[in-house]
Design a protein around this nucleic acid. Structure first.
Length: 304
RNA sequence: GCUGAGGUAGCCAAGGUGGUCACGGCGGAGGUCUGAAAAACCCCAGAUGUCAGUUCGACUCUGACCCUCAGCA
């Protein structure tokens, strides 16, 4: 059985390539873009709804299509949390469903962490996030978070790298984990192993990464992308969300583009500044994703 | 042309009675990544407008010059 994966920065043509594969091997797309999971965030997250709508499966008479061309779009409300764990759980169900019907799953997206967990993570214990605790701990300075973790599990803290030791979000997660184990009276495994997810072991995987050959091209493409989104009505999309009561603190709204446009609409920055910052954040984000992805030896890179 | 203010990294910007590696922020490079990831972090590089003078020693004091801004002409 075949599974195709297409990843890389935005505006590299992931969707077109995925659709090409869909035609070639009777496939169905599975989105792994963390922002497109959200309902109502269409324009700025760049959902290709038009392309999808106009897609025709070959060899299937019109009106007889039973396939869902893309999965995991519009799954949750912007006010809801959705984690990489949630993604993995949902994606596994979808993948099995697609394979059962003898179709080819084509994973498409840019959130490498989601893919990483799907492909490599072995979930040993079920330790859900404690939102109340997080909200409380978010008020704490890093020093206190470090102390707290040291109190609960000193070796775990010691095993963290310099970056994580100073990272509030990661420390809070570690506190959640350490507290869980302590309550159960089990020692926290400081080193957890990564194994290739069993599900993928017997599959024929084609793992494609699309990227630009230079940064200038990346930046100019992002500029054009942002321009396009503005023309498509990005500002109105945010206006509408604001009137519906969404705020910059909602999980889904913590997204590049929405943050900047919201600040513009609230009169905090000029429109030009909002646009410039949107482009800059998008560019920086892409560089971070590429840093993460390039460690994955399984990706076959294609430069455009 | 005169008067005033000022010239510190790509941008913003602190400083001092002259004395080890000149505070920061943004941006840039490189990284981190196990239930927030379009998140949150780590880390590295980079500067005293020019030329003289005073001094053991000047980014700091003096002078000239160049440039910027404001006001007056």
């Amino acid at each position: 059985m075949k599974i195709i994966i297409v990843t890389g920065p935005s505006a590299t043509g992931k969707t077109s390539l995925a659709l090409q594969y869909a035609k070639e091997c009777d496939g169905e797309l599975v989105n792994f873009d963390s922002r497109q999971i959200y309902k109502k965030l269409d324009i700025i997250t760049g959902k290709d709804k038009e392309i999808i709508k106009n897609f025709k499966f070959p060899y299937v008479p019109q009106g007889k299509q039973t396939s869902n061309l893309i999965w995991l779009y519009d799954l949750v409300d912007p006010k809801e949390y959705f984690s990489s764990f949630d993604f993995t759980q949902t994606a596994m169900k979808v993948l099995m469903h697609i394979l059962k019907r003898k179709k080819t799953p084509i994973l498409v997206g840019g959130t490498y962490l989601y893919l990483y967990h799907l492909l490599y993570q072995v979930q040993t214990e079920n330790i859900p996030p404690n939102i109340k605790l997080r909200e409380k701990l978010n008020e704490f300075p890093v020093k206190n978070l470090q102390q707290k973790l040291v109190e609960i599990d000193k070796p775990l803290f010691a095993s963290l790298n310099e970056s994580d030791k100073k990272n509030p979000q990661r420390l809070i997660r570690k506190i959640e984990i350490a507290s869980f184990y302590k309550k159960k009276g089990i020692k926290v495994p400081t080193k957890m192993k990564f194994i290739f997810n069993d599900f993928f072991k017997d599959k024929n995987i084609e793992f494609i990464g699309l990227t630009f050959h230079d940064r200038e091209k990346l930046l100019s493409t992002i500029k054009l992308r942002v321009d396009k989104r503005l023309q498509e009505g990005a500002i109105d999309e945010v206006k509408k969300l604001l009137t519906q009561g969404y705020t910059e603190n909602d999980p889904g709204m913590k997204t590049i583009g929405y943050q900047q446009v919201m600040r513009y609409l609230k009169g905090k920055i000029t429109k030009q500044l909002a646009i410039d910052e949107w482009i800059l954040r998008e560019f920086q984000y892409t560089k971070r994703q590429l840093t993460f992805m390039k460690k994955d030896p399984n990706i076959i890179w294609k430069y455009i």
